[in-house]
Design a protein around this nucleic acid. Structure first.
Lengths: 205, 205, 205, 205
DNA sequence: GATGAATGAGCTTTCATTCAT
DNA sequence: AATGAATGAAAGCTCATTCAT
């Protein structure tokens, strides 16, 4: 950020610009986002946009940064909501929560996931990763004190990405025949089985 | 395609253009694909490009179409290579094969997966979906004649997407700490457990 | 014309090209006429087109030249059809004939009149002018031997242009409320009065 | 118009762009009007052109719109200048005025009439039509209260088009032998006779 | 002669960014 | 600080014309 907004008005402006960027992305898609349009929606001049952000990229970074905080809050809110001790319940509710997040803000998050690699997602990735990892450790410590789980960070990397992108794909409209409920149940099933501790059966059938 | 290439030279040109597009995408990224650049790389004039393709989109579609055929061939080649009857072996080899595909052509396929939703992937999706579904049916008919599996198409939708995008993410460089072998093993584990037939244990721990 | 077509096949080709040009103009409009399209419609290669015509312009000139001959024939056919000695009848039939000409060939002539000044019309103008002038002289010599008419060439210049462009405008669709019959009758009335010989009434009312 | 010009400078720019378009058309012809050329002549960048006009077409429309206003003013100015009650005088002066208009602005109006059907002339047509119709009604009410004229709108459609296109043709250089005075006098004669009220003589001579 | 693949200048249009006010 | 007019490089695409086969 080019300039630390020190006055209240400036902070409002920065906030308005980020919000306008979000609106632009969710409404028109990432490709249609232009700085003049953002400024117009924010009710601000382009010049001002460039007073607070080095370039378009910086603006989007700020948006993702903001989004990261929101996601953290969402995750925290999620774990307080979960009361059950059932792994299945926890997973299922998490997935449902994820679907609702992806639908929020007119699909802003969906658009972000779709354009994942074009956006500076590193921080959000890290946060989600470490959050779910912490949660996982907590959970497994609580229920399986005796033996720690191998490769927990790998497992959660896989789970998080599988879930996220499968949800995204299922929401992207091309797969008409599959209901969100089916996705939720089956994803849940997959993850739960994956995380269960007993030795897998011999794999040769 | 605007004009059916009738002479050998034309076919070479069409091929060169598609190849140049592939090169552009894999080398510079999808955003840097411009018709002048493609033409230049193909060693051809812009006009020639438009003799054979209605527009840039058509060129990319042709590339994806080509890719779809290659993927089909790759999948067919894959199933002939698999000798084991072990589900684990099959899954593991498939994933390894997938990784090798994603690395092919200077990462063209990786770039394609990254830009999934900006590309006309419908056909490739269909092909992969139906191929894996057929394969799955075959496999389960062979080994579990007595009971068919519920929601097989949902399961494979989840498996295909989870695997594809998890591999893509793991290859995207941001996750330095996780080895491809770990991903392969854990993904395999997840999928195998998911597809195993016995009733899941009670989920409340 | 670059080359005198001496062989029968060449003449057919020239004819086919001119016809294709006519078709192109009447079907797609003058702006949409492209040499590749003409060649394609003529069933001939672009190269051949340029074997017989220096450039696009030359092709269009040939078309207009052809058209000029057709118009001459049409005019000759017109005067043989006219049996009445009534000036009004002659004018009216001429106008009706003109309307039918403008509608011929899918509106080719209409398109030509619309694009009058972008086309090499000199020859057709001359022919029409001199033809109508001859006819006028003949007519007036027959009926008013005693006194020749002043400014006959000016009068016919005015009459021909007025009629032609008024017809064109009335056919161009924007003047929904005026029927072709009204146009015909009123134009006839105007021309007949104009050509009548008695001294006009004092013009101050 | 894409953007309402809010500052004085912007209005100057819009004006400069329209003027440059006019200059382009009158100097090089409608076909040579390109956005880079217009911008260059206006002393402005292409980008600026597109800040104020959606596209080339919009620019031309604005020019025609401007022209329409000028024509209206010209017509109003014309009727105030006419003092005579003589129909002949009125017509003659109108035609002379028309010639002077067509010559104005380096022949811009002449070029517009030449390219009539390629330009969005509807509004100008309407204005000219209704203006001349109003004037005609007024005139005939004043002088021939007893009987209204049949088909006045048809008559004026014919008169306006005949005059306009005949003038245009006579100015287009191809008709070397006919002086503008001759055109003026004969056109006047034709129109005056046309509008005179007595029953036409029997038309068979 | 005939072909049609190949050319490339040039057009319309967009948009991130700057800078005079 | 704020504005928004102005920029101009660069994109996608067309089509009259040429020339190797």
């Amino acid at each position: 950020m080019r300039k630390r907004p020190q006055q209240e008005r400036s902070q409002q402006m920065v906030a308005a610009l980020i919000e306008a960027t979000a609106l632009c992305i969710s409404k028109y898609g990432l490709d249609a986002v232009t700085t003049p349009k953002i400024a117009e929606i924010a009710g601000v001049s382009v010049g001002s946009l460039y007073q607070y952000f080095d370039d378009k990229q910086a603006l989007i970074e700020a948006l993702i940064e903001n989004g990261t905080h929101e996601v953290v809050k969402a995750l925290q809110s999620l774990i307080t909501q979960i009361e059950s001790d059932s792994l299945e319940e926890i997973v299922k509710q998490s997935i449902q929560y994820g679907f609702s997040l992806l639908r929020q803000s007119d699909g802003l998050y969906l658009e972000i996931v779709k354009n994942w690699h074009r956006l500076p997602m590193q921080k959000m990735v890290d946060v989600m990763q470490s959050f779910s990892l912490d949660f996982g450790r907590l959970f497994f410590t609580k229920h399986y004190q005796t033996h720690s789980i191998q490769n927990l960070h790998v497992k959660f990397f896989i789970i998080v990405n599988s879930t996220l992108f499968t949800m995204m794909q299922s929401m992207s409209g091309q797969n008409a025949m599959i209901s969100q409920d089916d996705i939720t149940n089956e994803l849940t099933d997959m993850i739960v089985r994956y995380l269960q501790q007993e030795d897998p059966k011999p794999l040769v059938v």
